[in-house]
Simulated assay, not measured.
Amino acid sequence: MIGSFRFGGDLFSELNRLQQSLDQLFQTDGMSIRGSARGTFPAVNVGSSADSVEVIAFAPGVDASKLQVTVDKGLLVIAGERTSEAPKADEKSNVHAQERFQGSFRRVISLPEDADPAKVDASFRDGVLHVTVAKRESSKPRQITVS
């Protein structure tokens, strides 16, 4: 049960205590992506240039055949599954720590309005997914000749 809320004057320590209480309340067995304390899987970097939007997803241990990349209604969706060779707890063995995420995952990234969903390239190498979404030609700057 979560303890009662007391405000003793130090707001940050109270917020920290409340976060710890919520973490205890919603504690999972670590097998869910939502149980990850460090964020979501896969970690992504998103950037853009004048010509494209670049998405880098770090997905070590994922088989390329288990990855799905889709673009729909301005959203880039990266989904897949990562399996683990970690030992399973049974009557003959115990698992003392299991920090590596395993299971299904899904990341949704909003694309800018000038992204062209018809021009998407994806490659996967050494656990890194690189997705390039070209920008629409109509959104690129162009030189206008004055007559």
Score class of each variant (00 low, 15 high):
V95H: 05
V44A: 07
N45Q: 02
E85R: 01
Q98Y: 09
N94F: 15
S52F: 08
A89V: 11
R38M: 12
T70G: 14
L75F: 07
A37E: 00
D51P: 03
L75T: 05
V95I: 04
V62D: 06
T40K: 08
S65Y: 04
S32M: 12
S93Q: 14
T40I: 02
Q98G: 05
E85P: 04
S65M: 05
S93D: 00
Q68A: 13
R34T: 11
P87Q: 00
S84R: 07
S32Q: 12
K66F: 06
I56G: 00
K73D: 15
V71T: 09
S65Q: 15
S84T: 07
G39H: 02
S32A: 14
E91W: 15
K73T: 13
I56K: 07
E81N: 06
D63Y: 05
S36I: 07
F58R: 13
V95A: 02
G35R: 05
E54F: 11
A43Y: 07
S93I: 02
P42H: 15
K66C: 06
G61S: 06
S32T: 13
I56H: 06
L76I: 02
D63Q: 10
G61H: 15
L76N: 11
G47F: 10
S93A: 09
A97V: 13
I33H: 02
G80P: 05
A59Y: 04
P60M: 07
K88E: 01
V71D: 03
D90W: 01
K92N: 10
V53P: 01
A59F: 08
A89Q: 12
A86Y: 11
V71F: 06
S65I: 05
S49Y: 06
L75E: 08
S49D: 09
K66L: 07
H96Q: 09
L76R: 04
V53C: 12
S48C: 07
A50N: 15
R34K: 09
L75R: 12
N94S: 11
V46F: 00
R34Q: 05
Q98T: 08
F58G: 08
G47A: 09
K88G: 00
H96Y: 13
A89C: 03
R82G: 06
F41A: 04
V69G: 01
K73L: 14
G74A: 10
L76T: 03
I78C: 10
D72H: 08
A97I: 09
H96S: 10
S84C: 07
K66H: 08
L76W: 03
V46I: 14
T83P: 15
V62I: 14
R34W: 09
G47H: 06
R82D: 12
E91N: 12
A79H: 00
I33P: 12
V44P: 00
V44N: 05
N94K: 07
G39Y: 04
S48A: 15
A50K: 14
V53S: 07
Q98K: 14
A43E: 15
K88C: 03
R38H: 13
Q98F: 06
S49F: 11
E54G: 10
S48M: 10
A86I: 08
R82F: 07
A59N: 13
D72Q: 12
L76M: 01
Q68L: 10
S52N: 14
